[in-house]
Structures are given as structure tokens and as C-alpha cells.
């Protein structure tokens, strides 16, 4: 999905992990995903660039679909679709 498509997604849950360092955003994503409906969309907002690697890898490992990342003004918005 391109940046425009990602921005227009209907997001079921936003995880605000701004200002949190590794492994914080990953832990917050893991905690939050249980509150997202199956096939629902979760957006993780992080100020830590490592999160753009960590969250997609985590998603793949545990069975969520990684949709893409939008970089914007020092923040990264990572979009996922909950798998199970």
C-alpha cells in the first residue's frame, strides 16, 4: 500500500509509542493488538526508527499483516492488520 492509501485506512486502534525507546513500542503494540478486532487495523506511532523494523518483523512472526509505514516529521506510522 502506498502512503496515501495507508493514510486513508480506517484505523481501529492507534498505539501512541512516541518518546518510548526499544523495546517499548514493540511491547505496547503487543499489548494493544488484543483490543483490535480480527482483520481490524492498528497504527503504531513511534519516534524510534528501530520500531519500523521491529514491528513488521513481530507482525510477521505472530501472524499479523504488515500494511506499510508512513514517515512524517520525525515520526513513523506503522500500519498492521490483525491476523488472529
Amino acid at each position: 500500500m502506498n502512503a496515501e492509501e495507508l493514510r486513508q485506512l480506517k484505523v481501529d486502534k492507534v498505539v501512541d509509542a512516541r518518546g518510548v525507546a526499544c523495546p517499548g513500542p514493540l511491547l505496547e503494540a503487543k499489548r494493544a493488538v488484543t483490543g483490535v478486532p480480527i482483520r481490524g487495523v492498528m497504527e503504531v506511532v513511534s519516534s524510534d526508527e528501530g520500531t519500523t523494523e521491529d514491528v513488521p518483523l513481530w507482525a510477521k512472526k505472530v501472524g499479523h499483516e504488515y500494511l506499510g509505514t508512513v514517515a512524517d516529521a520525525g515520526l513513523w506510522h506503522i500500519y498492521l492488520r490483525r491476523g488472529k
Binding site: C22, P23, L26, K30, W58, K61, V62
Partner: peptide, 9 residues
């Protein structure tokens, strides 16, 4: 940090 990351995954 490694242990927590692994558990998160």
C-alpha cells in the same frame, strides 16, 4: 531487552 523482545515476539 533481548528477553523482553523475544517474549513480545
Amino acid at each position: 531487552i533481548i528477553a523482553n523482545g523475544a517474549a513480545a515476539m
